[in-house]
Design a protein around this nucleic acid. Structure first.
Lengths: 379, 379
DNA sequence: CTTATTAGTGGAAACGTTTCCATATGTGGG
DNA sequence: CCCACATATGGAAACGTTTCCACTAATAAG
């Protein structure tokens, strides 16, 4: 671990419990007892102490307390980015729940970078946070998460589907993505692309893709083409152009989050195409502005704020030793929101399709069919 | 001050510097010196200590350090809400700057509530944050800000125009609002309303209003009607309906932030009116989605992320004792962004105007004229 | 009038770190 | 050979709090 020699640090917190004790003419233990109501004290003492506190303007140093009590009343909150309103809302919800319970929130944005994620968790651990609420890049392979587990620090995942034994507030990405597939199928689409951040920086994207692939299979559609992009891709236009060129039969794109979906719509327009006439778009998350754009964005509606609130309360429960009660049902925590960006496939483009779809046989053992098909072209 | 008896707290941080010292067969002082490179040490000692650290998996407790060094490497960040992307972006920018400098960020959202703001600042002070970046409800009357000042904690305001002697990253609300007035005037508008959160919860709103009033005066327009709403107003539709009824000559509304502007557009539509044909709308902030809605939102374009970054760097400078260098020029940090929501006033509505505008005399002493006019109907 | 029991109180240890100071051990110059 | 002097090292104090323990004084029970 990298450590620095300590520099700077200004003088503050001039009045300590000792000053109060001296001023009130008693011992520090008595002051502590009075202020914390943690033991017996005479009326006279109480009054003198309170007067001293008032006069001196005393406030406890949480640092001193933390050292002694091994409790910082601070929670670490790790998310990829606040630029995406999903995380901003979730953080707000969590922060508020924690604040109301007397806990403060240490926030870190990782920019989807596992390196930063690990470093952040290490630092927060050194600061002895009492718990974590976090969205990691990959819940099954996060070293940071492992560190938290090994230290047995109370924690709850957010937007990451829970590996076994983990608490988590998230939607069931897989089944939600299948619902999206159903929506496309219902409108007559047979080949829909999937647009997402690199899977290594977001296991949500991967799970949504897997669900979408599975859904496409069940609906007898063509296996979705995949376009993975970097978080900071500036050349989205080019990438999408190439994506469309490579997949001429594609009549729609499922974007792994609303942010991407809106960006995709802009790119598509700049290519001179029309949404939804030339290409349908569906997003994921249900951010507010999706309803205000034209056409409105079809998407999976979630409630990030409630998720943040729920995750926070779960962590608080763990801390208090009471088993978390209202754990969410991931399969219930989303719904499909229709929108103008998803339209029936137009005749011309539908005619284009040349690639064979799955045989819509009605009785194969799903599992077998699925794995066979998957093996076809999985990395 | 409210204090609680301490409860809970699990056992952690099992390995301390003492364990390392014992394992390495030396004193704790030596361990500290080696790890912090804060004094001489022999090669052999260094090696033994490093080996012990590795073997035991030792990490410093920041709590212990904080107590001793009077430095927490933690910054308090107080903003009204993350639901507004302006603050979300600013927080992200600040958090990143702090992280790169080795500081963590304690975040509090106040929901525009001065009560919560004060409580938050008190708590963060007790936690001995090394600095603050904050947006307060009223920079001139914030008790929290006064507390920070009296304790001489390094800090920088964000989005609050700086009272004298304060550091601040913000736009010049007043002059930006005047620019909005110019834009309205240029399109032939003579009576434009102002929509904002209650001034007591946002001095930005007040300053924008004042600038807008001044600009309206200079442009020879009618004094803007004012609609103040609560943060959590559910009945915006009714309020706006009433607002329009009371001010029949109004041809546009300047909303104190983009969030409000978008909400207003929705309300206006739900009243069966069209933007911008029946009413023009201009916002403030320049959030990204303003460009994606239809019609696009005319607004004041700002760069919240840069503001957050700048404020953070200012605080870091203060902490390091180097005078903050690149302090921003508030009058340069915004620009007007045209958009479809602001259109020339239509003939029919322009005819409507009955109320006398200011005489557009070309030579009155502006100041006098202004104050006279103000006195007319100021509260 | 003793003797348990209790309420009230303060001293001191402990939490994990840094840093001052004192003590060793060496080195070089007189 | 001795003295100054630097280099290594560890003990202990300090940071602000809580809490254990010992102690006093008062009250209740015998």
């Amino acid at each position: 671990m990298e450590t620095f020699p300590y520099v700077g640090g200004i003088v503050r917190q001039p009045v300590t419990i000792k000053d109060v004790a001296h001023y009130a003419g008693c011992g520090v233990a008595s002051v502590s007892r009075v202020l914390n109501r943690s033991g017996p004290s005479s009326a006279g003492l109480r009054q003198r102490v309170l007067a001293a506190v008032d006069e001196l303007g005393f406030e406890f140093s949480e640092v001193g307390r933390a050292l002694q009590s091994n409790t910082t009343r601070t929670i670490g909150c790790v998310v990829p980015s606040l630029a995406n309103p999903v995380y901003a809302d979730a953080v707000q919800g969590a922060q508020e729940a924690f604040r109301m319970a007397g806990y403060q929130t240490l926030l870190v944005c990782t920019n989807y970078d596992p390196e930063i994620e690990m470093q952040a968790i290490r630092t927060l651990t050194a600061k002895q946070v009492d718990g974590f609420v976090l969205t990691v890049s990959d819940a099954r392979a996060s070293d940071g998460l492992k560190l938290i587990q090994s230290r047995e620090i109370p924690h709850c995942l957010l937007f990451n589907m829970a590996p076994d034994g983990e608490y988590s507030w998230s939607v069931d990405d897989c089944s939600a993505a299948m619902a999206v597939s159903d929506a496309f199928a219902e409108k007559g689409h047979r080949h829909v692309g999937f647009l997402a951040l690199k899977f290594k920086s977001s296991d949500r994207a991967r799970q949504r893709y897997e669900g979408f692939v599975e859904g496409s299979f069940r609906n007898g559609m063509i296996k979705p083409a995949l376009l993975e992009i970097e978080e900071d891709s500036q050349n989205l236009n080019d990438l999408i152009k190439e994506f469309l060129r490579t997949n001429p039969t594609m009549t729609g794109i499922f974007a792994s989050n609303d942010f991407l979906a809106l960006a995709a719509i802009r790119s598509i327009r700049s290519l001179g195409m029309n949404v939804p006439r030339d290409l349908s778009i569906v997003g994921f998350d249900g951010i507010e502005v999706g309803k205000m754009v034209e056409p409105s964005l079809a998407t999976i509606l979630t409630d990030p704020r409630m998720m943040g609130d729920g995750a926070a309360k779960t962590v608080l429960s763990i801390i208090n030793g009471t088993p978390p009660t209202d754990t969410p049902d991931p399969t219930q925590s989303y719904s499909f929101r229709a929108g103008g960006s998803l339209a029936p496939v137009t005749a011309e483009r539908a005619d284009d399709e040349k690639v064979a779809a799955f045989s819509s046989s009605n009785n194969p053992t799903k599992k077998n069919a699925k794995s066979n098909w998957r093996d076809q072209n999985e990395i």
